[in-house]
Every structure is written in C-alpha cells, then in structure tokens.
Design a protein around this nucleic acid. Sequence first.
DNA 1: CCCATTCTTCATCACCCGATGAAGAACACC
DNA 2: GGTGTTCTTCATCGGGTGATGAAGAATGGG
Lengths: 202, 202
Amino acid sequence: MTEHDNSRRPGRWRSGAESKQRILQVARELFHQHGYGSTTVRAIATAAEVDPAMVFYFYGTKQGLFSAVTDMSGAVPQAIESIFAGDLATIGERIVRTLVENLDKSDHMPLVTLTRSAPTDPRSEALLREFIDRELTGRLAALLGTPDAELRAGMVNVQILGLAVARYIAHIEPIASASVDELVATFGPLVQHCLTGRTAPP
Amino acid sequence: MTEHDNSRRPGRWRSGAESKQRILQVARELFHQHGYGSTTVRAIATAAEVDPAMVFYFYGTKQGLFSAVTDMSGAVPQAIESIFAGDLATIGERIVRTLVENLDKSDHMPLVTLTRSAPTDPRSEALLREFIDRELTGRLAALLGTPDAELRAGMVNVQILGLAVARYIAHIEPIASASVDELVATFGPLVQHCLTGRTAPP
DNA sequence: CCCATTCTTCATCACCCGATGAAGAACACC
DNA sequence: GGTGTTCTTCATCGGGTGATGAAGAATGGG
C-alpha cells in the first residue's frame, strides 16, 4: 500500500459549497462568542478544519465573512413579523418571548453577534443601530401612532438591549438562568407598560 | 546656536508622577472609547506623548494599566452611597439620575469602560458581573428584604445595562440625545415599579 | 484524452502587537 | 562634586494578524 496522505495534499477533495458552508457555520459560532475583533481568521479556519487561505478564497476578506454571518435576510424578519401580527394588548409578551426564544435556541443569532461586536467595531455599531431603528423603533412607532411613540419605542429598545446584555453577554443572575416563561412573565408586562401604559407628562 | 533637540533625548525631563498621571488619563479615554482589546499600548503612549516603554515602566503590563483605569475605589462608591441614603419610595429616580449624571459628565467612567470591554474580554466580564452583583443586586436585595428581591434587583440591572448600552455604546435614539431630566422622568418610575410595584405571581 | 475550471495547500509578505533590556540624561543627596 | 536613583529613549525580540500568489490535485466538459 503506497502511503500517500490524501487529506493533506492540494487539489479538490470536497464539493466546495460544503467547505464554504462549514466555514460560515464555524464563523457564526466564533464571531458570536468573541465578537469581530477578537476572532481571528486562523481560528475559524482551524475550527473548520480548513486552510486559512480558503476563507479568503470564498469570502474575500474577514469583513466579507462577517457580513455573511450577520446577514439578516434569513429567518429573522419572519420572527419579527410574527410579533406585529397579533393583538396590540399582548405585544409585550410576544416581544419578550420571541426575543428570548430565538436567542436561546440557536447559539449564533446575528443580533447577539452584532451586540457583542458593536462596542469595539464601529461598523457593527452602525449595523446594530440601523437594524434597531428600522425593524424595531420604526415599526413600533408606526404601530402606536401617538406623539410619544418614539420615546415609548426607545424604552422598549432599552428593555431588549438590557435583557440581551444581562442574559447573553454579562451573564447577570438571576436573568441569565431564568427560564423563558419566567422572563416573559417578568418582562412581558413591563414592555407592555412601556408601549401602552400611562407615562409621565412632558 | 547649537541645534540639539532636548525633547527627544533620554533622561529625566518631567516629574515622573506627572507622566504616570498623563498616561492614566489618556488610557482612561481610549479604553473607554474602544475597549480593552481594541486599545493598544502604543496608541496610549502616542496620545500621551510618551514612549511606549514608559507605560510598562510605570504599570508593568497592559492589564496592570487597565486595572488602574477600572479601579472603583474612587468616587464611585460615594455616588452609590447617595442612592441608598434617601427614601425607598423615590429610589428609582435617584438610581437613574445618579447613573446618567455620572456617566454623562466624565467621559471615562469605569462602568462604561467595563461594559464596552466585557463582550470580548473575559476578565472584564467577570469584573463587571462581580461589581453589579456586589454593589447593586446585593444591596438592592438587602434593602427590599422580600422573597422576590433578587428578581426585582435583576430587573433593575436590566434597566441600567440597557440604558447604558443604548445611550453610550449603541447610541440609539431618542435615548442617546435625551436630557438627564427626560431620562429620569421616563425611566425613574419604571425602575421604581421594578422595585416596589406589584408584579406577576409565581 | 486533453484541457480549463475549481478546490486546496504552502510559503510568504508587511505590519502590528506586548514586552524586555541596555544605556543615556537629569535630578537628589551627601 | 561625585554618586546613586529616577525618568526617558531606542533597538529589538518573538509572535500573531490579515492577506496574496503560485502551484498542485481532483473534477468535468469537449
């Protein structure tokens, strides 16, 4: 038997799309865990059992890979859509439940990845801000229609960001270990109050 | 006139304590703006008009300098003390006012620096969590004394983190541009409600 | 069967990082 | 006025970074 190591020799050995997909998957996890700046292309390549050069072959630059990871054209809008579909009187619970459920199940949600990268990466900060403005503040304000709608939407954003940071980044107890239902029961009414409750006069 | 450049020659030319202080000041601003990982010792040295080696001469390591920057033995406990000094019925407003006023005035508060570094630096994450647990959750829970005190304190932490991230890191409108009084009027009652309002039964 | 395309590896580039060590200049003290 | 301590500069080390280019191997179409 001629002992030639097929696995460590140049040339085709996988479908290409498979490698590209594997890189994307690993990149999602690592960017999610450590943020943009603290994740190296080499670490992604190693974890994906791939040569670092392949990352650039498929995605051009590190930023290109990050853009692919944080692309929100997938299932994200669908989840958001379901929030605005139901009754306004129970939208608070729906916001909290949708947020926490989506962020809990898949450990590579673009929103958390962006939130983790935003503090040190201006590009991520801009992306995060634009996403929140467009998909949350804008739609919530339009839904309410009242003059103080923008402020109310801002209050909800504070709840969402605080919840995400406390649970997924800083791991503050008892928020980090609470169940989805507990969080919904606790923060659902609070968010609801921000949107439809009475607030202080100007 | 013998043209010898005094400013670029080795040897004493400042008091030492002055240089050490200047480095600390610049480090505060840069760590605050970019977080631990994205701030380089060289950048600090350049901004402080000092040789990079001096940073290590005075502070040993980059981490040592960061520890000096995020040291909370200064005026921070005093501000926190004033929160717990007053009436329980108005503690919500006091929390928000103290938080925002302190974070607004000096652009190098350790709390924001830690919050910005936490997502990518495990050490900062631990420090932030310990600070919140010790100075906020613990004291708030002790103040309330009720069985659900921990959860209520956790809700306040979410408000604080959300407010800090929305206003100082992600710059979400209209939170980022709101005045101190507006924020107090908006979030004071909300925080108050988290602590002393009625919540959902278990 | 040949050849162009696609995937893969390797070597390497230029740059930046944190950190160290030596040596020189100004100061404080005696 | 010598002497030792303190502050400062410079050169450099080892290592990691993103990115590039060339060349080799499998594949598929003619």
